[in-house]
Design a protein around this nucleic acid. Sequence first.
DNA 1: CGTGTAAGGAATTCTGACACG
DNA 2: CGTGTAAGGAATTCTGACACG
Lengths: 99, 99
Amino acid sequence: MAQKNDPYKFKKVISIGIVSELTGLSPRQIRYYEERKLIFPERSKGIRKYSFADVERLMEIADKREEGVTTREIRNEMTKEVREKMLKGQMNAHFHFRS
Amino acid sequence: MAQKNDPYKFKKVISIGIVSELTGLSPRQIRYYEERKLIFPERSKGIRKYSFADVERLMEIADKREEGVTTREIRNEMTKEVREKMLKGQMNAHFHFRS
DNA sequence: CGTGTAAGGAATTCTGACACG
DNA sequence: CGTGTAAGGAATTCTGACACG
């Protein structure tokens, strides 16, 4: 596992303009990737707030897009990863019970 | 030393409204503490940007203010700490040379 | 000294839409 | 499909000032 007890990485506090600066993506692109369910900012009075984790995710997305991967495919890879992680979780729970 | 290789703690990316929510301080108070040189946000097109370190610092300031410590005194404690750290740095460098 | 507030302006963000492809 | 743009409105932030104390 990467880093989970990172106290700042997951707090949604960054507005879209700054995210745009950090990632090099346009606000339009960032909003579109949300529409395609690749990222999930929170809202503070209607205004989108992102975490550093979101910023890193967006940079990964940007890389894949440059390689020609469609948002649809990125989305699919994502759900696949989640599925695998859930399986692992199941297995861990299983072995835990058995031991 | 606390945490120095924290990749997110020191990036100035949070706007004053969010800092206000995180700390419970009013924007007015936050700007005033800057005027008194207790914090040093960066600016992105005139708009203040704070780091998580700044947020923590502001919470310390808030605690001291509640105890009745003046901004002047907080400022003095600060410069004193810096002075001590510089001394330590000197000593470390010194011993380093000698060993 | 430390903080609230009203004032006017500038910069940000939001959404829905049209465009191109 | 993915992204740019102009449009109109709403929310944010900024500064300097007056107030109270």
